[in-house]
């Protein structure tokens, strides 16, 4: 596989630093994948795993195992804004699932897929630890808590 992906100079330097930051170099895999995801429009492509394998001198299979184990890494493209609606118990009791469905309807997108305009991926996710402010969603890095359907739609409408 020819590697077509490359991190920025800073990104590569970051990964090199992470390799020496922890007691064991394998610990740099998670931070490196985060970095790739950040520089690759929110997802980690197979090419970027091959790239990391060379950069970090670790087998592709080990990086891929980590990549596919953790839910925060996306292995396919996502919208510009990744909207994750909590549907676990406390949120479910407070309308989290209805919220997820409503958002999908409103922005015309299926659960886990990218909206036609490329703005959103909306996914149902498990507990995010904000149960006292149910229902809630995470938009990219930000927690939006104590939502109503209207409030959530308003927040997303603001996002370009």
């Amino acid at each position: 596989m020819t590697s077509t992906f490359q991190l920025s100079e800073e990104g590569a330097a970051f990964v090199k630093r992470e390799l020496n930051r922890y007691e064991d170099r394998h610990s740099a895999i998670i931070p490196a994948l985060y970095r790739v995801q950040k520089e690759n429009n929110g997802w980690v492509s197979p090419e970027s795993v091959t790239y990391l394998s060379h950069l970090m001198d670790l087998p592709e299979s080990e990086i891929e195992e980590v990549l596919r184990f953790y839910t925060m890494f996306n292995t396919k493209p996502v919208g510009r804004h990744h909207v994750q609606v909590c549907c676990n118990i406390s949120c479910a009791m407070n309308g989290g699932r209805e919220l997820a469905d409503r958002l999908c309807q409103e922005f015309d997108v299926h659960d886990g897929e990218i909206s036609g305009d490329g703005r959103f991926t909306i996914s149902r996710v498990e507990c995010l630890g904000a149960c006292d402010k149910a229902p809630m969603m995470q938009v990219n890095d930000t927690f939006c808590e104590g939502l109503t359907e209207e409030k959530a739609i308003e927040i997303l409408r603001e996002m370009k």
Partner: peptide, 9 residues
């Protein structure tokens, strides 16, 4: 040689 892995969970 590490070719194999278990992917997903």
């Amino acid at each position: 040689t590490n070719e194999l892995g278990i992917f997903n969970r």
